[in-house]
Design a protein around this nucleic acid. Structure first.
Length: 424
RNA sequence: GGGGAGAUGCCCGAGAGGUUAAAGGGGACGGACUGUAAAUCCGUUGGCUACGCCUACAUAGGUUCAAAUCCUAUUCUCCCCA
């Protein structure tokens, strides 16, 4: 077997491992490993991708991924990395979120490849049957308060103004129990997580050792940040989600293609399956000619392809060309809608358009221009476009002949401010 | 309760009866440049039926041929003394 741990290390994916013998274990046989997700949103976000792809790497190396969606723990709230008590979600929301995340994970991991097929479990299924008394007797007894209080996540919250509730404080026990349960039922011996999960993971390892006298392992991946130390996956306009309804492939592509020069190679190592030699060659070329931004383009293409497939990538590339000035023609209403999904739009009566409307009047109706004067100014400054074609005459008339699709045309101000005008 | 200062365009801030749609800066927007970056440079930044017209300097009145600028009242803000 390949030395997958070494490979992960080379890709900068190992922040810490609980025990060095993990490397050997991973090369001598199939290991079942698990990662948990809290169902706090109906879509996973690109920040989760690092761990998912790491799972996929382990799976490709012959190991078996077990994914826990935290239907039970999600009802409690993990204090790790949070500086405030979480709002508890109701069961219906959690169920819907789990369904959404499950669908996404099924596309990223192989659930049908023989003995190391991924499986997905909901920890609510085993946590729900505990009574409080049983849980305290059977599980709680194994935890020492000193250790629990010493966890970084707990300590920080205790020292903060908001404090911590008993509920969140208990979270680590639940997660530790998950590990024990999975060890017993599924033979899971490794837990993978973000670096903020270290405390929860070690709690699980300790529990398995105590009750099963077995060696379990933890592997945490680093928190991915950009050049400014900002968390990967948070753009100006918000979080980048994997759900194309929430974040279009175009937006994801744009987020990635704008990666800064210092971070891009690291991202390529962590988020793509490109061989390291290829990335090294790319790094060299990028250093010689940063302006070409070859690394960024490859990163964006690879990741969008992983998440949204070839068709998603094509859509993203097409939207990119259009957003960056390609004339808009021969496009269907549906395509246009997809490309400009997150662009404001206005409606105009079809009759009015058929009768012809002065450009400035039309532009002033859009969200882009505050008044006719504003529209006039932009036209005079060469900053107004219809369907990406410059408007050079303030007296021109816009009519149904200007529709780029059956029912819409696109107004643009400057380089990339758009507004879709729909004829209704 | 007494005394003082002030309220200007998206923000800060000049202006103290007439070339004031209001200096200057910031921001924003457009353009050039560029790597869809940063920096830099240029332009624009109340509206309109646009070489002109209308609306604007807390609000409402008033004095003037003429008011952001003077007067009165109102509202609000800040400071000092009790």
């Amino acid at each position: 077997m390949t030395d997958i741990l070494q490979e992960l290390q080379n890709r900068g994916l190992v922040h810490d491992v609980s025990d060095q013998s993990l490397g050997e274990k991973l090369t001598t046989g199939m290991v079942s490993f698990y990662t948990g997700y809290d169902p706090t949103a109906k879509s996973l976000q690109i920040g989760n991708l690092c761990a998912i792809i790491t799972m996929r790497r382990l799976q490709l190396a012959g190991h078996r991924p077990v994914i826990i969606v935290g239907g039970g723990t999600g009802m409690i709230g993990d204090p790790s990395g949070k500086n405030a008590e979480r709002n508890l979600l109701d069961e219906n929301t959690i169920a819907a979120n789990i369904a959404g995340q499950r669908a996404q994970l099924e596309k990223l991991l192989d659930f049908d490849c023989g003995k190391n097929s991924a499986i997905l479990l909901n920890n609510y299924d085993w946590l729900k049957q505990f009574s409080f008394i049983d849980f305290l007797r059977d599980v709680g007894k194994n935890f020492r308060l000193g250790e629990m209080l010493a966890k970084e996540s707990v300590k920080r919250r205790l020292n903060s103004d908001v404090g911590i509730s008993f509920t969140e404080f208990s979270y680590q026990i639940l997660q530790a129990y998950d590990f024990l349960h999975l060890y017993r039922k599924e033979g899971v011996t490794l837990q993978l997580g973000g670096s903020d999960q270290w405390g929860n993971i070690t709690a699980g390892i300790d529990l398995v050792r105590k009750l099963e006298s077995a060696q379990a392992y933890g592997l945490v991946i680093p928190l991915v940040t950009d050049g400014q130390g900002k968390k990967f996956g948070k753009s100006e306009s918000g979080t980048i989600f994997l759900d194309p309804e929430m974040t279009s492939p175009y937006q994801m592509y744009q987020y990635l293609v704008n990666s800064d020069d210092q971070s891009v190679i690291g991202y390529l190592k962590k988020f793509t399956f490109l061989p390291l030699e290829e990335i090294a060659a790319l790094e060299k070329r990028t250093a010689e000619n940063p302006g070409a931004r070859e690394a960024q383009k490859i990163l964006a293409a690879e990741v969008v392809k992983i998440v949204h497939g070839e068709t998603g990538l094509e859509a993203a590339l097409r939207a990119t060309r259009i957003f960056f000035g390609e004339a808009i023609e021969n496009v269907s209403d549906a395509d246009l809608g997809a490309i400009f999904a997150d662009v404001p739009s206005i409606d105009i009566a079809k009759d009015q358009l058929a009768a012809g409307i002065n450009v400035m009047d039309l532009l002033a109706l859009t969200t882009l221009f505050s008044s006719k004067s504003d529209a006039r100014r932009s036209i005079q400054q060469n900053g107004a476009y219809i369907n990406n074609v410059k408007v050079d005459d303030i007296d021109r008339t816009v009519s149904t002949a200007d529709l780029a699709t059956d029912n819409a045309l696109v107004v643009r101000k400057g380089k990339k401010n758009y507004c879709v005008v729909k004829a209704v």
